[in-house]
Design a protein around this nucleic acid. Structure first.
Lengths: 230, 230
DNA sequence: GCAATACTGCACTCGTGGGTGTAGTTATAC
DNA sequence: GTATAACTACACCCACGAGTGCAGTATTGC
């Protein structure tokens, strides 16, 4: 039921508009409930009720609570993954120090805004909280989102390094320093602070830019105190 | 046990050794179960069984699952809090640049080892996962552990700043940069990666020290580009 | 319009788990 | 040694929630 669907169409969602509608409604409601209450805390009756769908329909389409859970997360991961590749998009284009600095600032903002958004923070909470129950899910998320961002960042950093705009020897390490200077503290706080007002966006961006300043002081245009790189 | 201990019957744990023993056994078992399975996932029968105690005894001593949960956490918080004040102990003693660097390195190691320990990571997972169900607990922990460390760090940084060993204008920000340069990335990874081998201590310490290097490059002994502090 | 199929409502099973009551046993205090 | 208080074993209640079965109704495709 979940896996194969015969006639021709690829996706079962395309077969019957009724299924598509139900499915979408259930996914929306389920996301909300799982994100708020965790896997065990969410209950299928409530999800069905909120989706304005009978419980039976939930079971017909998804097969069970756990499959539903995995399905929700699969969609969330896809979104996160798509985003991961976009954050860094123009970083590597810079070809002088000022541009690099500007790009780093832009990247910082690109990074901080979505990662500290309520949605993503709640997703993180969910996966971290379920890391012991669903280790593969947590690991999978980590690899497809934060880790992927870090890889993309690293590649960009390496390029900036090659152009002498940054002193980079371990690109991966450099990216981690960048990322955590920019959003480490507010992210950690956000994970523990539920019932959020999403922390004042402006304040957070200010902090992020200060992080970039520090980053530039450490990694910025090759300094001549100990002599040039090569 | 946590608060006071006298011949006078203040604390019920002191009254009868039987209670003390039972209580300790239950606390140990419960910690394990809550840390592993979360609040909803843990079950009282299993806890009682593992503590070699009847379920009735659990209810007699603690009153209920939720009180037990809070009690466990209260003890864990106390431990974390005690630790928080120790990490930074000697940082502010440095009175020349080399000593400061050495102290920062020592502090980094002091910080990284416990925070990335399985115990603390699991505690973080638990609290983050339950942040929506028990917001006060998560907030309380954050304030009594990470936040307190940060305050202590900030104070030390401020002193180093006053001595001209570090260029510090916002001590709190500086400490956050320090802490997250040192352990941001591995901590984030650890939260998502259950079923741990605790990540190779050596590797993590190496990373931490690299973090300190970067920190020093950014904040290190007052650079003379804009002139000394005062 | 007609057949196929999704959806609904509802009653139902069943396992699980928090919490209680109690009678009897064992440890402790004096 | 005796009274007191914990502890145990066990049976029990009850609510809740995952999952099922089915008969009837609403949609959809053609």
């Amino acid at each position: 039921m979940a896996t194969g669907r015969q006639p021709a169409p690829t996706d079962d969602a395309a077969l019957d508009p009724r299924i598509a509608r139900s499915r979408a409604a259930i996914v929306a409601a389920a996301s909300e409930h799982f994100l708020t209450n965790g896997y065990l805390g969410a209950n299928v009756d409530d999800i069905a009720a909120e989706a304005r769908v009978s419980k039976r329909t939930v079971y017909n389409i998804f097969g069970g609570k756990e499959q539903l859970f995995r399905e929700i997360l699969a969609e969330a991961f896809a979104v996160a993954e798509r985003f991961s590749t976009e954050v860094v998009s123009t970083l590597a284009d810079a070809d002088n120090a000022d541009e690099a600095a500007a790009e780093l600032r832009a990247t910082a903002v690109n990074l901080v805004r979505p990662v500290l958004s309520g949605r993503v923070v709640r997703l993180r909470r969910l996966l971290i909280g379920e890391a012991e129950r669903f280790p593969e899910l947590a690991r999978d998320y980590y690899e497809r989102a934060p880790d992927r961002v870090m890889d993309a960042l690293a590649e960009a950093m390496a390029q900036l390094g090659r152009r002498g705009l940054l002193s980079v020897d371990e690109p991966r390490l450099v990216s981690e320093h960048f990322a955590f200077l920019v959003l480490g503290a507010p992210l950690d706080r956000a994970l523990f602070t539920a019932s959020d007002q999403e922390p004042l966006t402006d304040e957070v961006e200010r902090r992020a830019l200060q992080g970039v300043d520090v980053f530039l002081r450490a990694y910025g245009p090759v300094r001549n105190s100990t002599g040039p790189a090569s």
